[in-house]
């Protein structure tokens, strides 16, 4: 796995994606675009984990039953050199743990995304706009002439 770090290009792509997503986060003032950038950013973190888990020449971490016909068929699709070396039983898997972790992280990401989008909807309802600059201007305008917002009406 540590060697995996040395096999560079996947990581180069991941870093590039990460930078791109951060760039989106930095430059846009639009709430929806910001959420897109954020999801992208989380996704690259996921990709990073998946890339870590890849073992050179290994297969997906799915248990192969060498006896059954299905297993035989799958084994046949593996790299013949490995089968020769390890036998069908000794199949080299990718590390399954990061996959599991990222599954969790994706769930977290989806939850964040949904909460974020829900808030974006509320912002649009309250301000009539989804640009943060406009929101800031509206707040500044509201706070200048008179003390801001005791709009103390309970939740509508």
């Amino acid at each position: 796995m540590i060697d995996a770090l040395a096999t560079g290009y996947v990581y180069a792509i991941i870093v590039a994606m990460m930078m791109a997503s951060l760039f989106v986060l930095l430059t846009t003032g639009n709430l929806i675009r910001k959420m897109i950038g954020l999801s992208l950013f989380q996704t690259t973190a996921g990709l990073f984990y998946i890339a870590l888990s890849k073992v050179g020449g290994g297969t997906a971490p799915i248990i192969i039953d060498a006896e059954s016909a299905v297993g035989q068929a799958r084994a046949a699709r593996l790299d013949p050199a490995y089968v020769e070396h390890f036998g069908v039983d000794g199949v080299v898997y990718g590390n399954p743990l990061p996959h599991v972790l990222i599954l969790t992280a994706i769930v977290v990401g989806v939850a964040t995304l949904s909460v974020g989008l829900a808030i974006a909807v509320r912002v649009r309802e309250a301000y009539g706009d989804t640009e943060l600059d406009a929101v800031r201007r509206a707040d500044a305008a509201a706070s200048e002439p008179e003390p801001p917002g005791p709009r103390g009406r309970p939740n509508a």
Binding site: T27, K34, R136
Partner: peptide, 20 residues
């Protein structure tokens, strides 16, 4: 103050830039 230089730059983007 609240509308001052420091606070004005306290936007999300600034936060992300600072992080980087």
């Amino acid at each position: 103050g609240p509308s001052g230089w420091i606070a004005r730059r306290a936007s999300v983007s600034a936060g992300a830039i600072w992080t980087v």
